[in-house]
Amino acid sequence: MLAKRIIPCLDVDKGRVVKGKKFQDIKDVANPVELAARYNREGADELVFYDITASNEERNIFLDVVEQVAREIAIPFMVGGGIRTTQDIHSVLHAGADKVSVNSAAVQRPELIKESSDKFGSQCIVLSIDAKRTADGAFHVFINGGRKDTGIDAVEWAKRGEVLGAGELVVNAMDADGEKNGFQIELTKKIADAVNIPVIASGGAGKIEHFSEVFAEGIDAALAASVFHYEEIPIPELKEYLSSQGIPMRRKA
């Protein structure tokens, strides 16, 4: 039976891990290579890196960090942030990433998903969706770091992403991000029910029970940042708890 996945996420800026709330108020946290090694040791099932840097020069620093991290870990490694072209995807894969997540650029030019999954395989193209509930009650897709409402329905976009060739989806619930009140289960479940590819819930994890709630709804994986960075929830304890709840977990041998 396939295990549910626990995925720590590192937001990397100028070669350092940072953490924000609702995509703002960014603070410095740690050295990404050290943190990645720790997560690998503690039994994380996968690792995610988001590049939140702006300039080309910083992008090169980021690629160096990706390579250093890839050398340290023996678990799947997803990288995203500012990916615009198949060349960007190639650079990140070449630096040692296993999967690349696309977000704003895919909304602006959906063919990017098809072109890149044709070229590199669906298994390494992840569609990351930033979504927020709007005044009419529907969940819309936001782009540009959560600043712009596209008016696109998040569930429809997820379905289209699957058809275009995405191998996996990350659902970032913007309202829940950094609030530690639990994952946005309503939206994540709607999306998971609408597609036949794995779905990763992201945003809102604050306590151990939030993880069992999201897995009980059939979601495949849960992503979190600060609760892991600050060791509020140690991964070995989290996995032990979830296992005791009957949720299939990969445990360290």
Binding site: M1, L2, A3, R5, D45, S122, Q123, G167, E168, N196, I197, P198, D220, A221, R250
Partner: peptide, 13 residues
């Protein structure tokens, strides 16, 4: 088989 999610992605025994 399409009875399960494809790709088979993740940790299995």
């Amino acid at each position: 088989s399409d009875r399960v999610k494809v790709p088979h992605m993740g940790w299995n025994i």
